[in-house]
Design a protein around this nucleic acid. Structure first.
Length: 259
DNA sequence: ATGCCGTGGAAACCACGA
């Protein structure tokens, strides 16, 4: 079973790219981020025409997350992280699909740091870690997938020295990611490729994609039920080279599905 | 390397992204 995550950077603006990628790679379950569309403007029919059921949490202009499935129905568990009823951003969607608890997340960017946006990011990360600890207790394989807006280590940044003060790389954020993983999660991409340089995002300017000046910020964290069942993983990096494409590339894992 | 590109939304600029 292939599970993918893709920050589309505007689902309607990128619809041809999304549909082409879905058609060519036929992932079974997909987590999408940055829909940038209100609830009523999600392109449900175009996605259904390719055989996908969809669950989404939209928001006008910003954020927005969705889960797609072509392997059975999507049973919503929650939208929004617990811990802050004042948080209106559409950044988290959790559902059961094909016996897997799928958690699609779009962690706040947090720039400029320091500042209120960075504080929001750190609070959001704390809430995620609290909720993730609870998820490890359920009797079900769990996947946390999405745009974490964190480069976990120096290896995940083309020029780490330039990113030290950035909200995606500051020590507090890397530390939050580290303590999340240490709860018992597996960083699937890094585990599968311990030494390679792997990026999932390239800026639009300065020819970042052409120079491979990228970042690894889209991640899969797997609960222990997946141990020994991760059979392949990768980044569809050529999608980043298509016309009118997102600044992120899709990331995927293949897992044995007899869990 | 300071948003140089790109999106959505409101109103021909702005907020936001990483």
């Amino acid at each position: 079973m292939r599970i993918a995550t893709y920050n589309v950077n505007g689902i309607n603006g990128r619809l041809p790219v999304l549909l082409r990628w879905l058609s060519e790679t036929t992932p079974d379950i997909v987590c999408l981020q940055e829909l940038k569309a209100p609830q009523e403007k999600f392109p449900e029919q175009a996605i259904a025409d390719l055989g996908y059921e969809a669950l989404w949490h939209g928001q006008k202009s910003w954020n927005g997350v969705a889960i797609l499935s072509r392997v059975g129905s999507i049973s919503e568990v929650r939208r929004g992280l617990p811990g802050d009823p004042e948080d209106e951003h559409s950044r988290y969607l959790e559902a059961d699909v094909a016996g897997i608890r799928v958690c699609c997340l779009y962690l706040p960017n947090g720039n400029p740091a320091p500042g209120p946006k960075f504080e929001y990011k750190l609070r959001w990360f704390d809430r995620l870690n609290d909720h993730a600890a609870e998820l490890l207790r359920i009797d079900m394989p769990v996947i946390l997938a999405g745009d974490f807006n964190v480069m976990p280590t120096d290896k995940d940044v083309y020029k780490p020295e330039r990113w030290q003060e950035d909200a995606l790389f500051r020590p507090e954020v890397r530390e939050a990611f580290k303590s999340l993983v240490e709860q018992g999660w597996t960083d699937a991409i890094r585990t599968f490729y311990p030494d390679e340089i792997i990026y999932t995002f390239w800026d639009y300017f300065r020819n970042a994609y052409g120079r491979n000046a990228g970042l690894r910020i889209d991640h899969f964290l797997l609960s222990p039920q997946f141990d020994g069942r991760l059979v392949a993983a990768g980044v569809d990096r050529e999608v980043r080279g298509w016309e009118k494409t997102s600044d992120h590339a899709p990331v995927w894992i293949d897992v044995l599905d007899n869990l």
